[in-house]
Simulated assay, not measured.
Amino acid sequence: MRGGTKQDSDPPVSLQPGQVAFRLLCRVHSAGGVIGSSGSVIKRLEALSGVKIRVEKALPNCHERVINIVGDATVEKKISMVVSSGNGGNEHEEMVEVSKAQEGLIRVFERVLELQGNGGNENDDINSNSKGLIGCRLLAAADQIGAVMGKGGKIVNGIRNSSGAKISVLKEQMPACAAPQEAVIQIMGGVVAVKKALAAVSRCLQDCKVGERTPGQKSSHGVSHDSHKDSILNNNSDSPTFSGNFV
């Protein structure tokens, strides 16, 4: 059984006021390694970053699974990223300010890279194209994409320039695990570039003021996808919940 002993579905996680949820896509064959034996890896990542992590069930004919990361949206932490000056130059440490939710997202993505053979070696050909690029795919509500793009693409172009990553928004040929009215934010580049861009993109999503929206629709696997309400959420019984299981 992939990921260790099969467990019953985790108890749902409600999105509380002051929290944000990120939805990271990973390949189906990598999900077990993100979960770990009896959920050991998820438990370690949750303890490290103070978030809740739920992996949604695999869907037929879908090559990806959704990892929900739910945590506080307050930017109060700093994490280290090793940044290369390029062309074989020296590396230096750069501190990036993040929330607990963002740190959880980045730590989960780092685990995915480890499983796919790209834990830090940008020359590794596993899960890379001929130029050694790796990818990261996030699901986001379609009405939040403007917060990442900015007027005339100003924000996304700034992230591209500062990180060196390529960022695109895909609204067609969506994976079956996506909810209606979601889009894929795809980030491509070297390991460092993608991680820097992921921090910046997730910050835009986190800071986005969702405003009044209808309650989230539920997919066929029963997870509410009104998933990016953050600090403006009212504390009520309609708060979105996220479920998952260890398989």
Results as ranks from 00 to 15, higher is better:
Gly71Trp: 00
Ile106Asp: 04
Pro60Trp: 00
Lys131Glu: 09
Asn90Thr: 09
Met174Ile: 10
Glu114Met: 15
Val169Pro: 06
Asp124Trp: 03
Val13Gly: 00
Val28Cys: 08
Ala147Trp: 01
Ser49Trp: 03
Gly117Ala: 04
Leu233Met: 08
Asn87Met: 11
Ile42Arg: 09
Ile145Trp: 04
Glu172Lys: 15
Asn129Ile: 08
Glu76Asp: 11
Thr74Trp: 01
Gly244Asp: 02
Gly153Lys: 08
Leu139Asp: 00
Thr214Glu: 15
Asp143Pro: 02
Ile187Tyr: 06
Ser219Glu: 09
Asn90Arg: 12
Val184Thr: 06
Gly119Tyr: 04
Lys229Val: 15
Ile134Thr: 13
Leu233His: 03
Val191Arg: 08
Ala73Cys: 11
Ile79Met: 07
Thr74Cys: 10
Ile232Cys: 13
Asn123Arg: 14
Lys43His: 06
Leu133Gly: 13
Gly135Asn: 09
Gly216Met: 01
Asp10Tyr: 11
Lys78His: 02
Thr214Arg: 14
Ser40Cys: 09
Asn129Arg: 06
Gln186Thr: 05
Glu46Leu: 10
Ile155Gly: 09
Thr241Val: 10
Gly190Ala: 15
Ala142Thr: 03
Ser168Thr: 15
Asp125Ala: 13
Ile185Asp: 07
Ile79Phe: 00
Gln116Ser: 15
Ala47Pro: 06
Val210Asn: 02
Met95Val: 08
Lys229Ser: 13
Asp226Ala: 14
Ser38Leu: 05
Asn127Met: 14
Ala140Arg: 02
Gly222Thr: 14
Val191Gly: 02
Ile79Gly: 02
Arg27Ala: 12
Ala31Asp: 05
Ser224Trp: 06
His63Lys: 13
Ala142Asp: 01
Val13Ser: 05
Lys100Pro: 05
Gly104Met: 03
Leu133Thr: 12
Phe242Leu: 01
Glu91Gly: 05
Gln206Cys: 09
Val28Lys: 12
Lys166Thr: 14
